[in-house]
Amino acid sequence: MAPPAKKPLTKIVSHLLVVEPEKIYAMPDPTMPDGDIKALTTLCDLADRELVVIIGWAKHIPGFSTLSLADQMSLLQSAWMEILVLSIVFRSLPCEDEIVYAEDYVVDEEQARVSGLLDLHVAILPLVRRYKKLRMEKEEFLSNRLMKCSLLCPSPDSMHIENIEAVQRLQDSLHEALQDFEGQHPEDPRRAGKLLMTLPLLRQTATKAVQHFYSIKMQGKVPMHKLFLEMLEAK
């Protein structure tokens, strides 16, 4: 008997393959003295620019732009740090105990220690190890995109949403896409489930990162751009 034909990827997945944003770079200010203020300034600036990219990317997810503006805002305010952390984690997969904040900003434990990033480093590393165990590298291209979509659409009853049904429909279509993705891996039929099981650790890591940056904001020593501040305050 012929093996069953692979189910074609949903429109969502095939569309996401096209709209993945271009890489952005950290570009640390060469005139600043090395140290924690420089490192955190670099990261806050990077996060601000990545946020702009994430917002633009979210608008390309089929169905997202048809939600009310208030619901789009609620979903992004809820998921932005998880999406940022997930992007960092996927970039770090090929490395050994290094965190790739950007292609030009790769930090190992010693560098993290001297630049005040050790808390973040220690928080993110277990997530990198977890995805490495899942041998995520091979599927990085698709799974990263689908995961980011799933993050954008958590359970609508857990937050303030105007039109729960519309968000639910978006969530359903994303779950269908995840199932399609699973269909691409007949050797590992529980792959989508394993991916979803990583979400609690991702949430926990993102919460730590938000707390970290919020306390930095309260200290007032590191300049932060308005969008990043806005999103931190929304948390």
């Binding site: 732009s65 503006l69 992004l76 305050e233």
Partner: peptide
């Protein structure tokens, strides 16, 4: 919305939303 002005603006300055 006033409090989240930039997010609001970025979402409103829509490049044509994708309709699949």
């Amino acid at each position: 919305k006033e409090k989240h002005k930039i997010l609001h603006q970025l979402l409103q300055n829509s490049t044509s939303p994708v309709d699949l």
